[in-house]
Design a protein around this nucleic acid. Structure first.
Lengths: 222, 222
DNA sequence: ACCTGAACACCGTTCAAGT
DNA sequence: ACCTGAACACCGTTCAAGT
């Protein structure tokens, strides 16, 4: 079984391609043509090698995608000036993660990973957990609070990205129109009332508003 | 181009399989072996037919998955007794959607659709939007509020489902351990502090707590 | 109208061998 | 140690033909 290249100084055939080159080329393909077009075969041709050569540098395609996410995070997740007020710090840190991830919608496939997406994001997690503690939450509730924020953030990105992808390649947008057209205003009066505003309202970016509401709620002692 | 079976009374060769049979058999496969094992070919064999016969009843695999989600929703989304208090009504309706979806983790592939997943869910959406309006939000903010709740709910399901899937078939759980073990307590003091509680805290189901916080926050006038 | 068989244009990954 | 060629075991979908 071949080992994903270690950094041991061993002798043998000198490597022709590196893990970095693999990830970099994969990123180029994904940026240019979308994550669907990234296949091991395609990547191999692009890199001037064979599919199997790749398996010496990454364990499998899944690992490649995770590496791609890490790479993106390391590249775009710049630490912002943090406000002194802890509540604002939570907002800024979460919004920074959100912004970096929203910039690459293909992330959806990988993102839905777990709570700690990437080591580059740890600092942001620290800021959020610390902010929550500073605002008076016990550490355990701060961790739960962080997860709640993460669910909201990941959900926003995943839902929006998938909706955008759908809109791009089919007519499911009309599905919603049909639903609203067929609405029985007696049974579903509120939905009928907002029916024609639904599309524009949904298009609005309300991530930060929702985030503020969520943080307020988390910090309210009930 | 074959049309997905209409209900017009036309003459011709009598159908051997129905759309219902297709969806039902697909559901059996998914329930028994997971969504990964649902392929058009497998489904065709199971149903005693050929792959192409399926394309007379569903447009493509994507549509089949949507039908599967609708079917699941119609089957499991039973309308609960609603509390009179609007705030509680929001919680109960959202928790009902969450519960139904969390029961079938394969939904992840489809779920990440958009805000209106299924006609069976409309009644719940109505309850949530109405509850928010009753609590004093103007209709536009109620729609935004509903979407925020939806992001949180979808995110919770997607993240947990994917994490579970990962845990099942590889050792990425150890990734987190490694991260926490290598943590520099000077740079990331809070994370270091909660390091050994992270796993159990993360395993806890705090969906409803988070939901309550979110709703509180949405209803707080800022 | 509905179904079939064969084919198209792909996948990710493994195995055994080469350098 | 690193890379290659060929193969395995699949996919979703289209096309042209049959009943």
């Amino acid at each position: 079984m071949p080992q994903p290249s270690t950094s041991r100084k061993t002798l043998g055939r000198p490597p022709r391609i590196s893990r970095e080159e693999v990830v970099e080329t994969a990123r180029r393909i994904v940026d240019a043509e979308g994550v669907d077009r990234l296949t091991m075969r395609r990547l191999a041709t692009e890199i001037g090698s064979t599919p199997m050569a790749l398996y010496h540098h990454v364990r499998n395609k899944e690992e490649l995608l995770v590496l791609l996410l890490d790479d993106h995070a390391a590249r775009t997740l710049h630490r912002p000036e943090l406000p002194a007020q802890p509540r604002e710090r939570i907002i800024v840190a979460a919004a920074a993660i959100h912004e970096a991830l929203a910039a690459c919608p293909w992330i959806v496939e990988v993102l839905t990973a777990d709570d700690l997406m990437s080591t580059s994001a740890l600092w942001f997690v620290e800021q959020i957990v610390d902010g929550l503690v500073e605002c008076g939450l016990p550490p355990e509730r701060a961790v739960h609070g962080y997860r709640t924020i993460w669910y909201y953030t990941a959900g926003e990105i995943v839902v929006r990205a998938t909706a955008a992808r759908r809109r791009a390649d089919d007519d499911r947008a009309t599905f919603r129109e049909r639903v609203f057209a067929d609405l029985d205003p007696d049974e579903l009066p509120r939905l009928a009332q907002v029916a024609d505003q639904w599309a524009p309202l949904t298009a609005e970016d309300t991530y930060v508003d929702g985030l503020r509401a969520l943080v307020d709620g988390l910090l309210t002692t009930r």
